[in-house]
Amino acid sequence: MQIIQPHYHAIARTAQDYEKMAMSGVVAVAEPAFWAGFDRLYPETFIDYFRQISEFEPTRAAQYGIRHFCWIAVNPKEAENVSLTREVLGQMPEFFQKPTVLGVGETGLHKSTKNECDALEAHVDLAMKHNQLVLIHTPHLADKAHGTKRVLEVLAGMNVNRSRIWIDHVEEQTIKPCLDAGYWVGMTLYPITKCSPKRAVDLLEKYGRERILVNSSADWGPSDPFTLQECVLEYRRRGHSVQEAVEVFHNNPCHFLGQNPKFDIQPIRIESDRTESGSDQLRQSVSV
């Protein structure tokens, strides 16, 4: 089955990830700009990072037949450095011209401070002015409910196209208000600290497939990109069809990311043909 990994921090991972992802059906990944584990001091560090994920990383993924796309932003954890944020934001539009840059992300909140909220608003404003998609990080653990509420409040005060904004890392206590407000949401699968594959499938069964993405992030911390494949297996073992799985794990990313024409992977439809022996054969076609 073909899978798209819509949130994946490739530069923190080895080529073995790419190899095993390719062997398990991953055809594309999208890499949001991330926190490096320490607060960066210089705008130039971000510029080189953006060059790495928009120019170099696609070549590494291509060796395994995987398409690589990316997002650019100043990470919420670094938003307390106001002058740095302003300088990086000023240089981001030139990267919007790159062939694999899909939009602004991951921006969002970490501790939900005033500087973080200001930075989030500036990122979203820049994205809307340049007709870019937006990927918004929501805080982890104890800060999640409050931080997600603040994200929604910041966005509510802006003139945004909600269908072009993806609020990520939702869980049971935050998914409904984000969906109700008209945004896309993402469930991020982590071994311990975020959503689990089983809980993600529970949420898919409760809220349906519309405007929901599933990703496993995978960064330099304890994380595992193959929790996404675990989630596919869990979804299938509960009786959902191959086509339903394709809708969640391939076509939904196509629908959201494809709002930027640079993301040109098309939704697919698996069709079942009855053979003379009576067995079903699956045939894949591209639906437009």
């Binding site: 071994p191 311990i192 600290t193 689990s196 089983k198 809980r199 529970d202 069964e205 409760k206």
Partner: peptide
Amino acid sequence: FLESRYMLLEIAAYLDRYDA
């Protein structure tokens, strides 16, 4: 702590899944 939190959430989800 986080590992225990994770396991408790899985149990909660198991019971919610059953109720659903």
